[in-house]
Amino acid sequence: MDTAERRLNGKHLSFYPGCSCSKNGTARRYGSSSIAVLKALGIEVSEINDWNCCGSNLYRIIDERGSYFLGARNLSKALEMGLPEILILCPACFLSLNRTLTEISRNTNLKNEIAKKYRVLGGPAVSRLRIRHIIDFLVNDVGEEDVKNRVVKRLEGLKVAAYYGCQITRPYGYFDDPEFPTSLERLISWIGGQPIESNLKTKCCGGMLMLTNEEEVLNVIESILRSYVKSGAECIVTACPLCHLNLEIGRARLSGRVGLDENFPIIYFTQLIGLSFNIPVEELGLGKDDVGRITEKVRLTATVKGV
């Protein structure tokens, strides 16, 4: 057992699924595949008890104070569980909870008011809170050696393009460059894939505006999809529930126009890692079509290369 593994094996984090990645959410596959991948790496996660909405931007515009209370309740539950390191998948939740923690730390009045309601946040334990995005955790804590050691099926030569979307690294750039992050490309290469670059990998997908300004947002998504078609990618991996949904809508509506196969695999990056770890596809929530196309491609590439 190497040092990294000794350090991490049995590590226990709290897990904030948020509405999208919870079991009834649209991104439940992101949730289930992430938990499966972490388990395979010997990391334990416990869902935060009775968690609530993160207090995202939609809420914060109407009620800023309320949004910090919403975020704070989740933080207090994690502390009460004795698990101050919180793992998050959804970039919007990640931003909200980070923002709440920042506000509590710098605004004493707000902190005191919040601590009246959620007492644990008034104590010294607050300084132990860490809000981690799963990409950050996998790349910087688990690391190259441990990820590589878990790979059962190397995705040899599969051309994978990552789509980060906006809020994983912006505005704060907690763990990677705000405009040109590379963490996902590193992960892709560790599991044998060939990372393909798109210059629009952190361009905003339009987010919730899909519901209110469909035409404008579809135009934005068209430009994003075109850049991926041009890149020659065989699979797009995503890390955000909303980006994923918008790209899927784009694929269904625009595939003909942009020259994209309507069955082109667009999956969460954790699903791809899970595939390379040989985790059962049911746990990863992967459709037969996606698995078929990816494994066929990998088999062909491996045969040609003689792997």
């Binding site: 931007n57 914060r60 515009i61 109407i62 800023e64 906006c166 809020q167 912006r170 505005p171 750039g173 705000p178 405009e179 952190t202 361009k203 905003c204 339009g206 987010g207 919730m208 505006l209 300004n213 404008e216």
Partner: peptide, 30 residues
């Protein structure tokens, strides 16, 4: 139309978080 993607914020040479500026205007408009 601001989706708060914060590309403006990370590029602003005067270090203004324009995304948050837009958020403040939205709140005020409402």
């Amino acid at each position: 139309l601001c989706s708060t993607c914060y590309l403006c914020a990370v590029r602003c040479p005067a270090k203004i978080n324009i995304g948050e500026f837009m958020t403040a205007l939205k709140r005020f408009a409402l």
